[in-house]
Design a binder for these strands. Structure first.
Lengths: 341, 341
DNA sequence: ATTGGCACTCGGATCATCGGAGTGCCAAAC
DNA sequence: GTTTGGCACTCCGATGATCCGAGTGCCAAT
């Protein structure tokens, strides 16, 4: 079964290259891994693997390096799930358990993920679109100005200041508050927006006619605010310093991407559910300039109904198994925490 | 007046070195700047400047490079205030005017500042400690759980979830809300905390005794939360890519510092008021590892009562005059915006 | 005080050399 | 048919020698 051995060779090449950062030759391979064959045999296999496009040599008479295609095969078929050490598990859970609010959860996740993977970590804030309205609070700030506070099921809180066209009485405010909550509370965002707009279109009392419009508009705007969909936390940029070589080709575009949240979001891709981790390798991604960076990401959210994405961005030459388990584990912990409150 | 010319020479060296990134020699100096003397004269001056410690040569027979001391003199005595171009002004104001809330103001400031200076920009969120309580809202989420929303004069909103020891009636909630607001609203943070604690110590009605404690504690904690004092926004890290050389010595520690908000805060230093811009050059700063980075910072806040700091971090070799005006301008615009709402 | 002249220094670029790791291929062995 | 040892070959990268030129310091002249 040479076929089997070839795959073993590919796996060995990937592992060694990731570990050493240097092209790996036939001799070093047989020494460091227990393949019971001679270097010559490995060379034959390597030639075959090269023909099929899984590896290349940077130049004649150098060792081999995996191609994107090689990494792809490695990830798809040669990766064994690597469990996290007990210490790591404990670190993740204790660190994340200390979070006091949503912001803090996200910050801490980014931090722990980047430390675990020694890579750049990216965590998207939970999307509004799937969450439900827990409560709407209206607070009078001045006769003609109020603060609308929107509390969502994910724990996110949005607030807007609303300017009114006429003075507002306390009774009218209380009335408005209860009416708004009765149509919106408990509903999913999109439904809530529709219901609120309906309320604004036909003011139930003449009193409210002057206020309901601006308030509803502010709320609807807060609910469908795509800016907040794009909120993202990034951490571990210092890990980029380890790239060392290939600075211009790899680090610069990545640093630029990290500041463009829209780009980052596209890079993370669609959120996947159920513990599935997406791996996008090098040129498989949407940006040419990031041809030598890979993305390992997964969705997270309460009850495994993916609310948002979180993951890691790094060089194609990365420890995929380790990164994948780290990403999966952090996603699971974060989901659990969000479920709790 | 050789003294005067010497300073002119120093200024020319700084300007040239900042522009070209290369040690500057006597010949190039007289050519590029209109000093009406010969290279030999300049050499004499340079020797004197070197004796006094304002410049050095990286190695014998190379041009001169300013020392920290040289930059210091340049900043203190040789800098003419460089006004911003009309286009820049317009860019800043229109960009910042588009901000919708406090978060957005900070984000946009970081962005505009980093683009203006082509450097890493850092903006601290307004401190809680100087601001006053605008309003406290209490929202029932469940019979034994409520959400406390704290609205501050800076526009910042903090919220905390409070677990109660007993079921809460609507009347008790309303009572509590009005009592809390009557003692806290309009007060400065520290006063409000004291007043609230007093309220908790002697519950005005037996009804409230079971609730007032946890609620007040949550509010006090939110008010004195030092974590939020440490909130910071960073932008323009991609500009670090321009360093090119001196990667390990300069970029790596800086990247690490950017993730340690505590370090960054210490780096920014005390907030200064009244349009004063602080410049800290190289080894003047508190961190050895950042001996080749400078900080240009200033305080900002409504009515010029510095609430927080904002600034730029970059290599000692930076365009100080330009950076200083940019920092000053952004601080002024941000202050104005915060004053408005 | 300034200037032109001049010998001197030293870093960086250029180029040649050399060693070694690694390959491909072939013929022998299993 | 697969595996293996042997061998000639390639080419990268380190090392070292050479050389050029920008820049300096100093001195004598202005």
């Amino acid at each position: 079964m040479q076929e089997e051995r070839r795959l073993a060779v590919l796996r060995a090449i990937v592992e060694d290259y990731v570990a050493t950062e240097e092209p790996v030759g036939s001799k070093a391979l047989v020494e460091r891994h227990g393949l019971g064959v001679s270097p010559a045999t490995v060379r034959n296999d390597m030639a075959a693997l090269e023909d099929e496009g899984y590896i290349t040599q940077p130049h004649t008479s150098a060792g081999r390096v995996p191609t994107d295609k090689g990494y792809r095969l490695f990830v798809d078929r040669l990766t064994t799930v690597k469990p996290m050490s007990a210490a790591e598990r404990r670190a993740v859970s204790t660190f994340l358990d200390g979070a006091v609010d949503l912001d803090d959860v996200v910050q801490r996740s980014v931090r722990v993920l980047s430390q675990l993977t020694r890579q750049v970590a990216v965590v998207q804030y939970p999307t509004l679109s799937r969450s439900t309205v827990r409560h709407v609070e209206l607070v009078a700030l001045a006769p003609r100005r109020l603060l609308a506070v929107l509390i969502l099921s994910t724990g996110r809180v949005e607030q807007r200041i609303v300017e009114l066209g006429a003075d507002l009485s306390d009774e009218a405010l209380a009335d408005l508050r209860s009416r708004v909550n009765s149509v919106a509370a408990g509903e999913i965002i999109s439904t809530a927006v529709t219901a609120l707009r309906a309320l604004a279109a036909e003011p139930p009392t003449a009193d409210l006619a002057a206020y309901v419009g601006p308030v509803v508009e502010a709320l609807a705007e807060a609910m469908s605010d795509h800016r907040s969909d794009e909120r993202i936390a990034v951490g571990g940029a210092a890990n980029l310093a380890r790239y060392g070589d290939s600075f211009d080709s790899a680090v610069r575009p990545l640093l630029e991407a990290l500041e463009e949240h829209v780009v980052l979001l596209k890079l993370l891709g669609e959120a996947t559910t159920g513990g599935m981790v997406t791996v996008r390798i090098g040129a498989e991604g949407p940006y040419e300039q990031l041809a030598s960076t890979s993305v390992v990401a997964t969705g997270y959210g309460p009850t495994n109904d993916a609310l948002a994405t979180l993951g890691v961005v790094g060089p194609t030459r990365m420890d995929y198994p380790g990164t994948m388990t780290a990403v999966r584990a952090v996603a699971r912990y974060v989901s659990r925490i969000l479920d709790e409150d």
